[in-house]
């Protein structure tokens, strides 16, 4: 009898705590910065010029215009040189600047630009860009720069990208424990999966 009493108390406690958890307000998904190393690239790509705000001289280009694979693949990918040239062949004003000259050198030699990885995870971690972009950008209608920024920081203010967040497991989990709406219109909340095998396959 005593046993069942204890069990029911436990169950009630669980239900109450679960209820209070669900009733929590949606928590912000931004976190503190933790800078990664400076990465030497073949030439400086000015993210601020391409993605920055117009009042600061930026073009406000959508992240996914160049990192086109992010929404349909595990990796965001680097655009092929072809894509850079697609625009730059008709932008005469900067054609003779050192960086663009370098870009055209690679294009004419038909050589891929050896960009270095700025965000790398250990081989035993599987991070999927597609899932995150589909959730935040397409289901929740979050601005693209905000959604990418949860992990990549405020890229529109950088030239060469630099790691801004720790990208450690604890950091991932801290976000996966927070609630966020299921989609843009819903009042229901959910959080990221916390099963080991979601990331460690």
């Amino acid at each position: 009898m005593n046993y069942f009493l204890r069990l029911s108390v436990l169950l009630v406690g669980l239900v109450v705590s679960a209820g209070s958890y669900a009733a929590n307000t949606v928590q912000p998904l931004t976190t503190a910065d933790d800078l990664g190393p400076k990465v030497e690239q073949p030439f400086e790509f000015p993210h601020n010029r391409h993605a920055g705000n117009a009042d600061k001289g930026g073009m406000e280009i959508n992240c996914m215009y160049c990192h086109t694979y992010a929404r349909r693949s595990m990796v965001a990918g680097i655009p092929p040189v072809q894509k850079c040239i697609g625009c730059h062949q008709s932008i005469e004003s900067v054609r003779e600047t050192p960086r663009i000259k370098k870009l055209f050198e690679y294009w004419e030699a038909k050589k891929a630009i050896p960009w270095k990885k700025v965000h790398d995870l250990p081989e035993f971690v599987r991070f999927n860009h597609e899932r995150h972009i589909q959730r935040f950008v397409f289901a929740q209608n979050k601005p693209v720069q905000e959604a990418c920024g949860y992990c990549h920081g405020d890229v529109k203010t950088m030239t060469v990208a630099r790691r801004q967040k720790p990208l450690s497991m604890g950091w991932c989990v801290s976000c996966h424990q927070k609630d966020h709406p299921v989609d843009a219109t819903s009042t229901k909340t959910t959080h990221g999966p916390n099963d080991c095998w979601q990331c460690h396959k």
């Binding site: 990664g36 990465v39 990796v75 680097i78 040189v81 072809q82 891929a112 050896p114």
Partner: peptide, 16 residues
């Protein structure tokens, strides 16, 4: 760990 920020290259194409 095998994290290689700034060491490993990203898969990059000229045309694709």
């Amino acid at each position: 760990t095998s994290v290689e920020d700034g060491k490993e290259f990203v898969t990059s194409y000229v045309e694709t």
